[in-house]
């Protein structure tokens, strides 16, 4: 029974990493948003399972926040934004899908090695949870780096934050205040970035960030 509980926790965390990989090769924005919603649902499940495991009822609240905001509110809002902006066209990854995937695999391996080495004394569940969380964070950053499109970067940032929440809930005794404040800061970041997206579009007729570089002061 004990074994099964751990395995479910692991498979949920591993699912998050897998969904992160799926995000890397999505070349349509609407599909990307959907995958992000899937990741958020997985995150909510994982957090809820942690709540059950640790008998920490406040984690259910975290799970609910993740489900409501990240799996529903933000994806719906993003869908509306891209519809209003009229960008259903393809997005092109910078490095190319194959090499991006290889880099992603390397990052996961790196985070495994680092976490196994650093957290020698921690409980096994926490160790592997942390390794998965670091993988999700690194993959989120990789997505931010490889995407040209501002919406893609926003989603990369959100998925990075999912990794943070996963890490935070994996460690026992994390107070609820911290999680709520992290969730709200992400929400505010989302609002700010959303407003910026519209402002950028109004000014430059595109949300491709390389367009911004052309308008910078000369060096």
């Amino acid at each position: 029974m004990e074994r099964l509980v751990f395995d479910i926790a692991h498979s949920l965390a591993g699912g998050l990493v897998l969904v992160s990989f799926m995000m890397l090769y999505q070349d349509r924005l609407s599909a990307l948003i959907n995958i992000f919603a899937v990741q958020a649902v997985l995150l909510a499940l994982s957090v809820a399972w942690q709540a059950y495991m640790q008998q920490a009822p406040h984690l259910y609240i975290t799970a609910a926040i993740a489900l409501v905001f990240k799996a529903i509110v933000i994806p719906v809002a993003l869908h509306r934004i891209i519809k209003q902006l009229g960008i259903h066209r393809e997005i092109e990854p910078v490095v190319g899908i194959g090499s991006t995937m290889f880099i992603g695999i390397g990052l996961v391996a790196l985070s495994m090695v680092v976490m196994m080495r650093v957290t020698g004394q921690a409980a096994p569940v926490a160790r592997e949870d942390l390794a998965f969380a670091l993988s999700v964070i690194l993959l989120g950053m990789l997505m931010m780096v490889t995407r040209r499109n501002a919406v893609g970067q926003v989603i990369g940032f959100m998925s990075l934050e999912n990794g943070l929440v996963l890490a935070a809930t994996g460690a026992k005794g994390m107070p609820l205040v911290v999680e709520i404040s992290v969730a709200f800061s992400v929400l505010i970041a989302f609002i700010v970035i959303g407003i910026f997206l519209f402002r950028i579009r109004e000014r430059f007729d595109t949300v491709d960030l390389s367009a911004l570089d052309r308008h910078r002061g000369g060096q």
Partner: peptide
């Protein structure tokens, strides 16, 4: 640098 370069640097 451009925004993407900065992101790259951080990464």
């Amino acid at each position: 640098l451009t925004i993407r370069r900065y992101l790259n640097l951080v990464f």
